[in-house]
Design a protein around this nucleic acid. Structure first.
Length: 426
RNA sequence: GUGACUGUAGCUCAGCUGGUAGAGCCCUGGACUGUGACUCCGGUGGUCGCGGGUUCGAACCCCGUCAGUCACCCCA
């Protein structure tokens, strides 16, 4: 019988990769704490209706990417395809949004049934940040500063760039979409099949076309900027000047349109060229209408989410963190004779007590001392304690070997080992 | 969801026009001294992704299926 394998698009994170994940999680937690954000946790499963109402009925995500099913009660549930909807639901349900400001963060698995590719999986981890109750562009910029601080912390700031756009509110975008549709219908003869398809589904996307023969038409198309209200424009202009003060570089990308309906005003993405087609590492923006749309009180809101897998890929590609973090042991205890195991365990206990931040590993399973030494070096240990039955009985001592290029070794009373190692390792 | 390419030992890969499998690394034993990185010799390990078909005979050809990669699409 064939071995069972992981479900398509779900991937395992192996021990060689988990240190990078832990590093990423620690950095994120540190940055978010330094900005005064609080963690919120909410379920992986929600009513399907929640996602339909927030993300939008006709978006790709709800139309063809959700893991939806009926549970035993006949309720239609879905695995969350993103975090914002669940966060709003949880925060509003518990009164966190009533006449107050909130700065929240979360971390967790999201699910989308897409064709898997590197940097795009059906289960993927997101780190997200959501803020509520703040109207001005200051909070938008804070989100960008926060993400920027994380890139700094991770050492990838020179490999990502900030792109942003002002997409107006839902009504303005609706008017623009209508005008755009009308424009393209008038120029239907010049469109290719892909553009004709998008004319029905999402006319905004025609602007993205890479077909050079469409360029002359596209150049004449109406501009979103002309449909955006003055209020929205002022917000955006103010935001740009704050970004300048904050010394964060950005590119305005007029084609940047996010795939979720709830966004309005300023949206942004951090993108990289190092990951091929999956270049978006972080995306977000304002969604002032969503809380009310989901039955709450009208509340200003802005947030972003970043894809952990993509960040891990970036870190693996651009840094040598993997090697730096690969150490599994500081002290390795080798046993030449099986009857030394009790003494080895007693020594390990003592060392762990005296060196609580260090890792102490005992070799089990016998084998030559030379191959045990190899294992100790492979684990990154700096010291090996070699226990030998005879020496142990005769003098309560062991051989302490330094695992550097020189490899000098000395005899040492067991009772003195902690002191010696404390001197070297603390 | 569409298209292209790939799938052989734990890992990286050979395997010519079909004749039932190989290398390097890793692991392990020995030369070697009871204690590491070099050298040499030996050993473990594969129903060639899975299922059909063609053939006297399939890792190789055909069909299906699963998975991965890349692009489209979409997004984190």
């Amino acid at each position: 019988m064939a071995k069972t394998q992981a479900v398509r698009g779900m991937n395992d994170v192996l021990p060689s990769e988990t240190p990078i994940w832990q590093h990423l999680e620690e950095c994120f937690a540190r940055v978010v704490k330094s900005f005064g954000y609080s963690e919120i946790r909410f379920p992986v499963l929600e009513q399907t209706q929640l996602f339909k109402r927030s993300i939008g009925e006709v978006t790709d995500i709800v139309e063809k990417e959700m893991y939806s099913f009926e549970d035993r009660n006949g309720d239609n549930l879905s695995l969350r395809p993103e975090g914002t909807a669940g966060c709003v639901r949880a925060a509003d349900q518990h009164g966190l949004l009533y006449n107050q400001q909130q700065r929240l963060w979360y971390q967790g698995a999201m699910f989308r049934h897409e064709r898997p590719q590197k940097g795009r999986y059906r289960q993927f981890q997101q780190f997200g940040v959501e803020t509520y109750g703040m109207a001005g562009p200051g909070i938008d910029v804070e989100l960008m500063q926060l993400s920027s601080a994380l890139w700094q912390e991770l050492g990838i700031n020179s490999h990502v760039r900030l792109e942003l756009n002002n997409i107006g509110d839902a009504q303005e975008r609706g008017e623009y979409t209508q005008a755009l549709r009308k424009f393209f219908i008038d120029h239907k003869s010049g469109l290719d099949s892909e553009a004709l398809r998008r004319l029905e589904t999402n006319p905004l996307r025609i602007l993205d076309s890479k077909n050079p023969s469409l360029q002359s038409i596209l150049d004449k198309a109406p501009l979103l900027a002309d449909f955006v209200s003055d209020k929205s424009k002022d917000h955006f202009d103010e935001l740009l000047s704050l970004l300048d003060v904050a010394e964060i570089d950005y590119v305005i990308n007029p084609k940047l349109v996010r795939g979720l309906d709830y966004y309005n005003s300023c949206v942004f993405e951090w993108v990289t060229d190092a990951l091929g087609a999956q270049g978006t590492v972080c995306g977000g923006g304002r969604y002032d209408g969503l809380v009310e749309q989901l039955g709450g009180k009208s509340t200003f809101a802005a947030g972003f989410a970043m894809g952990a897998e993509r960040l891990v890929l970036l870190l693996e590609e651009l840094t040598n963190l993997r090697d730096q973090l690969s150490k599994r042991a500081d002290v390795f205890i080798l046993v030449r004779d099986e009857d030394c195991i009790g003494a080895a365990q007693a020594l390990a206990k003592n060392l762990r007590f005296h060196l609580p931040s260090r890792s102490v590993v005992i070799h089990y399973g016998g084998g030559k001392v030379s191959s045990q030494l190899k294992g100790a070096i492979a684990a990154g240990a700096q010291f090996a304690c070699i226990l030998e039955s005879e020496q142990l009985k005769d003098s309560s001592s062991l051989r302490l070997r330094k695992l550097d290029d020189v490899g000098e070794s000395t005899d040492c009373f067991i009772a003195d080992v902690p002191d010696k190692l404390i001197k070297c390792l603390l």
